[in-house]
Design a protein around this nucleic acid. Structure first.
Lengths: 346, 346
DNA sequence: CCCGGCGGTGAGAGCGCTCTTGCCGGGGGC
DNA sequence: GCCCCCGGCAAGAGCGCTCTCACCGCCGGG
């Protein structure tokens, strides 16, 4: 663990190149209006001294940080069991890196952390925030709004507070669910059950709505409440088998839930897909391919969603002309389409 | 996406409280030597104005950032399939949060990114770095060393460059592997095969060494090379069944590999554990519990390892007296013990 | 009763950078 | 040939904070 050595300053570079600080600054920041021979001298001096700009000093005057906070408001549950999180982070990281922004990760686990996160964001350490995994009546959006930090949500927030101007990126949960159920109906299954996700998240509610779209007059007892976990899927599946033993298909709110359902179905001697067809949601690889039988599921392009969130946020910051050209127009929410991936389970 | 409003400065608070900037600064930073009535006036002014210190200005003069970089040098592979990463992050996040440090996440995917990361660290944006997933002959440690940033590695780096002073936190991979194999031997299995991890990582090498410790005179054809992935596990298992069809146990370098092995064993009609006993490594939940049969595996306390890495790094920064008291002595590497978790597969 | 010391406070410098301002020199218009 | 304009550069202010240092008033000791 070495100690930091004093780093060269703009001043030092200027002295070595025999120019003023302003000129060095222009060269370093790629501004034009500097003649080539001078610029070259400056570049050489930068090289020789190993000069790296001091970001704190720069931020102090520009009031920009080139850093984005990623807030994951997840009390333990899905984040760990699910590569979802890592994938989305990767997408975000890629996009931010491409635009020379840093990623500051804020994980929260409870009310106390909310205040901390709000304070941090209000502290103006970052230029914007990407916020995930909101639950109903979560105070976070409100707090962030008040902090005055530009934000893009991952998943539709259940929050009317901001009225307009709330930007989010989400999958077409409802459409994907509808497709899944219609696929099951198309296979001739007439008793399609649904295991919901945690209904305090809009994604779960939307998937349930999609199910209902396709099953207009469904028996309410064909729906059991899960929580996006494997154990929840098992529990709900048992409940369904008890209440509606005649069911011949299950649409699970996510793959983890589907895996739980598969296990319970097997326990009860039901063959998949012969007796009961099963469809999941997420296409969580490599597990969706590796279940027994391989899982038919609804895929969403998670990484691309992450990238898009970052892009929308950066665009909202209105910074580079390039960013504006790329997308054009004021940022607005985006719903990603989903695809049904057919494997063996349905 | 709201725009940021101008935030109150120290100056403003001072004016409102009718004191000097210095006094406000003292109160805000918890220094003593301010009489109670004055301090109270200042606190009220802070409250009323909603003052939050400007970190950039502070960093500029203190040359501290209260931020730690987490570098994950993982080209795609394990990070996604494995909650490992998320778990460790959680541990790190908890510890950093407890010490009011921020977590700056740097994901890399290739040589090009190495330079970027090195530049970032050299730029003095963070006070230290936690570095993961190093591969053999990775240039990163060297670059970081040169950047002069205090660093703690996750997993033993294969790197003699720094000589002494390299601090890392690792599981007892060798001991864990030895325990796993001994457990298999104890079950009366005499032909224990091993599917390695990616041998360009020390964890894989150490687990292989542990296997060899317990299987001193093992047939070299009982070892097949994997890469920590499910597909790699399948491939290696096929190879083993071809070369040594008489094997009656497999120790897989991680759980994902073990799952691949289980699948291939089933394909070949071998019953687990009756014909072939299988042990994994990681105890990757909830999957390790949910394989068929549930997987016997070697558990490591991933989150605690993350916490400890953060703690060691912060201690190395020698900042708070409190941190020093908590641990005491100069930081040195730590090897975490592992536990064998017995389930049905062996 | 005077003076030295000390705790509490304020004034000011300066961290490293950006950006505005103004100067200086050269080229084109009349 | 003179003036004006404009491009290229340097000078300097100032971002918001910390920290040193000097100051001021009060106490106790001689």
């Amino acid at each position: 663990m070495t100690e930091t050595v004093p780093r060269p300053t703009l001043e030092a570079v200027a002295a070595r190149a025999g120019v003023s600080r302003a000129t060095v600054s222009r060269v370093v920041n790629g501004a034009d209006g500097v003649t080539e021979p001078l610029a070259e001298r400056v570049r050489r001096a930068v090289e020789e001294l190993g000069y790296v700009p001091n970001q704190a000093a720069r931020s102090l005057v520009t009031n920009r940080h080139d850093a984005i906070a990623v807030v994951v408001a997840e009390p333990e549950s899905r984040v760990f069991a699910d590569p979802f999180f890592a994938r989305q982070l990767r997408g975000i990281s890629r996009e931010l890196t491409a635009h020379d922004n840093q990623l500051v990760l804020l994980l929260t686990e409870g009310r106390h952390d909310h205040a901390r996160v709000a304070r941090y964001l209000a502290g103006g350490h970052v230029d914007g925030a990407l916020v995930f995994s909101l639950h109903l009546d979560d105070p976070l959006p409100e707090l962030i709004q008040r902090a005055g930090v530009p934000v893009v949500f991952g998943g539709r927030p259940d929050w009317s507070g901001g009225g307009n101007g709330v930007v989010y990126v989400d999958s077409d949960n409802r459409g994907g669910a509808r497709d899944a159920v219609r696929h099951l109906l198309g296979l001739g299954r007439d008793r399609v059950a649904h295991i919901t996700g945690a209904l305090d998240q809009t994604s779960a509610v939307d998937r349930l709505d999609g199910y209902r779209d396709a099953m207009a007059d469904a028996d309410p007892r064909l729906v059991a409440e899960g929580d996006f976990t494997l154990a929840g899927g098992e529990r709900a599946m048992r409940e369904l088998l008890e209440n509606r033993p005649g069911l011949n298909a299950v649409f699970a709110a996510n793959d983890l839930t589907a895996v739980g359902a598969l296990r319970v179905l097997r326990e009860h001697g039901r063959r998949v897909p012969d007796d009961v067809a099963v469809v999941g949601f997420d296409d969580m690889l490599p597990f969706a391919e590796q279940t027994d039988p391989p899982l038919t599921t609804v895929r969403q392009d998670i990484e691309e969603m992450g990238r898009l969130m970052a892009r929308l946020l950066l665009r909202g910051l209105d910074r580079t002309a390039a960013a504006r050209e790329t997308v054009g127009g004021p940022p607005s929410s985006v719903i990603f389409p989903t695809t049904l991936v057919r494997r063996a389970s349905a």
